[in-house]
């Protein structure tokens, strides 16, 4: 497979093969994970629209370094549609129950700002990191063996199962089934049977075969996991992390100026 055939220089941080691509492809997967984790904590803690707006602008700039602006635009358009639906529903609820607190567009905007920020950082991570780089990163995190193996298997096998889903869909087409939202609505149980049962059987077989192969290859002999090659973060990774921390600090500053009332966590 393509991901597993990459050499170590490729997989460690993606530096060698990613040369000539955007900044995002040259960042270490650990840096992107740290930014994603920091983002998920920051969006929960902050509630001031100005602070979240600053983080949204920064995260959009971060995600745009991917060069996939069409996809980003489509995802943000989806969030905008969701927001319009929420506005409509809230307005309808307010009309139906006048005792409800009045609709405040700025306050309603805040959850969607959070969603948009998370979307930017997660897309940046997902679209610029190869499976093998993620596996190398997981190994470098020195997780316990019983956590590392299932996590690595999960990360490695999600793309394989997606390919399996494609194969199952093609088989169904060949057999004359057109599985679409309407078919799922009209025949939910049949759809589940047609799509889900072959997948479970494939998964069970894959689990057995892979488990036997792993044992025969001697996986689990070592007392602890040792990465094949120690990967050090480059200067650009430290700069990206410092930038992310500085932005979150600026967001906290804006939040402090606005006060923690009105939905803040503290």
């Amino acid at each position: 497979m393509r991901a597993s055939s990459m050499n170590d220089r490729w997989t460690a941080g993606g530096a060698a093969g990613a040369r000539g691509r955007g900044l995002m492809h040259r960042l270490d997967a650990r840096t992107k994970m740290a930014v994603s984790l920091l983002g998920s904590v920051a969006v929960m803690v902050l509630s001031d629209p100005a602070a979240l707006g600053l983080l949204l602008a920064a995260s959009a700039a971060y995600a745009l370094t991917l060069g996939r602006w069409r996809m980003l635009l489509a995802c943000h358009a989806g969030i905008a549609v969701l927001m319009c639906v929420a506005f409509g529903l809230m307005h309808a609820m307010h009309l139906a129950v006048p005792r409800m607190s009045p609709l405040e567009p700025v306050r309603l905007l805040v959850p969607f700002l959070r969603l948009a920020i998370m979307l930017n950082v997660v897309l940046a991570l997902a679209l610029s990191t190869r499976v093998q780089a993620m596996l190398s990163t997981l190994k470098s995190l020195r997780l316990p063996f019983c956590v590392y193996i299932p996590t690595a298997v999960m990360v490695r096998f999600v793309p394989s199962f997606v390919a399996d889903v494609r194969q199952v869909s093609e088989t169904l087409k060949t057999r004359g089934y057109r599985v679409n939202p309407l078919f799922l609505l009209r025949h939910p149980l049949l759809s589940m049977r047609l799509l889900f049962v072959p997948l479970v059987f494939r998964a069970l077989r894959a689990a057995d075969e892979l488990g036997i192969a792993a044992e025969l290859k001697g996986l689990g002999y070592a007392d602890r996991l040792r990465p094949c090659r120690t990967v050090h973060l480059a200067r650009r990774d430290w700069a990206a992390m410092a930038g992310a921390l500085a932005l979150v600090a600026a967001g906290v500053g804006l939040q402090l100026r606005a006060g923690w009332g009105g939905g803040g966590m503290f």
């Binding site: 063996f145 019983c146 193996i149 299932p150 996590t151 690595a152 298997v153 999960m154 990360v155 490695r156 096998f157 999600v158 394989s160 199962f161 997606v162 399996d164 889903v165 799509l195 889900f196 997948l199 479970v200 998964a203 894959a206 689990a207 057995d208 892979l210 488990g211 036997i212 792993a214 044992e215 996986l219 689990g220």
Partner: peptide, 24 residues
């Protein structure tokens, strides 16, 4: 070891399958 490698692999495969099924 409390967990055999085969069991850990099974847990990982099922975790992957839950994610893919949700997506599907």
């Amino acid at each position: 070891r409390y967990w055999a490698v085969r069991e850990l692999v099974t847990v990982g495969v099922f975790a992957a399958l839950t994610k893919v099924s949700s997506l599907l």
